[in-house]
Amino acid sequence: MDNRTNLDDYLAGLGIADADETASPPPAPEALPAAVPVAEAAPEDPRAALERFLTGLTARIDPGLSVTVREGEDALEAEITGESAARLAGRDGRTLGAIEVIAYTVLAKQAGRSDLRVRVDVGGFRKRQADTLAKLAERLAVQVAKSGEAHELQPMPAGERRVIHIALKEHPDVTTESVGEGTSRRLIIRPRHG
């Protein structure tokens, strides 16, 4: 079966034809206006680019949402607030993660800054998640200290591993280590020996 024919049939079913007879032919080259040189646009301020993108995105989703962007220690941090902001997190923060990836891509393109990290929080989701992870880290640290045996967590994103590393950084009885590669990277909490 010819894939081209199937695609043509599919497009025709949508009212899109490969060669639409009603379309007018392209204008002759001499009828086109002379090309005007376009000046290279200077990269936009990263904070302004991120705020503009997130404001446009949230306005299309829910005009009642507002965006605040600030410069953190190692990243641009955006907070989306409003009555229905928490819904933007999605299941297990997946929608929020996708918003961060797109925001990072826009920032890299508009501001020419692929070196900046972007963190977005909606309705305090990231803060609540960090608090929950810190409490989990403390419970596991007590368990590891009592048993003397290491505890290996399930694979998790770098941001979540970082929260646990920071929560247990100064713990007197345990130490943390990340092992594995890519999406299989996970954290191990080990007893601290002398």
Score class of each variant (00 low, 15 high):
F125H: 14
G123I: 02
E21M: 06
R94Y: 06
R52P: 03
P33N: 07
D45S: 04
A17V: 15
D18W: 02
S114T: 15
V69K: 13
L116H: 12
R113D: 03
D115I: 14
L107R: 02
V36Q: 12
G124M: 11
D62Q: 03
I61F: 06
A98G: 02
A103C: 09
V36F: 00
L65R: 00
I16H: 08
T22I: 07
E40T: 12
A108F: 09
E21D: 07
L107N: 04
R117D: 02
S24M: 14
L107Y: 00
V67Q: 08
R94C: 00
A34C: 06
A103Q: 01
D62K: 01
R52I: 07
L57Y: 01
P26I: 11
V36A: 12
I99T: 04
R70D: 12
E40S: 08
P37S: 14
E83K: 13
F53D: 01
E30A: 15
A111C: 13
A59N: 08
A35H: 11
E79F: 03
D74H: 14
K109V: 12
L14A: 15
E30D: 13
A48P: 04
P43Q: 07
P29M: 09
A59H: 10
G82A: 06
Q110W: 07
P25A: 15
I102M: 09
S66R: 14
G112V: 07
V106A: 09
A19W: 02
E44H: 03
L57M: 07
V106Y: 02
T58V: 14
G15S: 09
G56R: 10
A41T: 10
E100T: 08
A42C: 00
I99D: 00
A108S: 13
A31V: 09
R52S: 06
G72Q: 12
L96E: 05
G72N: 07
A34I: 12
I99E: 00
L76W: 04
E77V: 15
S84K: 15
T68W: 00
G90P: 07
R119M: 13
E51N: 10
G56D: 10
V122I: 11
R126F: 04
G112F: 11
V67G: 01
A23I: 10
G112R: 15
A103R: 06
I99P: 00
A28E: 13
G123D: 01
A111M: 15
P29K: 05
A42S: 03
D20F: 02
A34S: 12
P63A: 10
P63K: 13
D74A: 15
A98E: 02
E83V: 08
P37M: 14
T81P: 00
T58E: 01
E83F: 10
T22S: 13
D45N: 15
K109S: 05
A34T: 13
L96D: 02
I61Y: 03
T95R: 12
A108Y: 06
S84W: 04
R119G: 01
L107G: 03
A49P: 09
R70K: 11
L57I: 04
G64V: 01
G56W: 05
A89P: 02
T68F: 00
R60D: 00
A49Y: 03
G124A: 10
F53L: 06
R91H: 13
R119W: 02
L54V: 01
S66A: 13
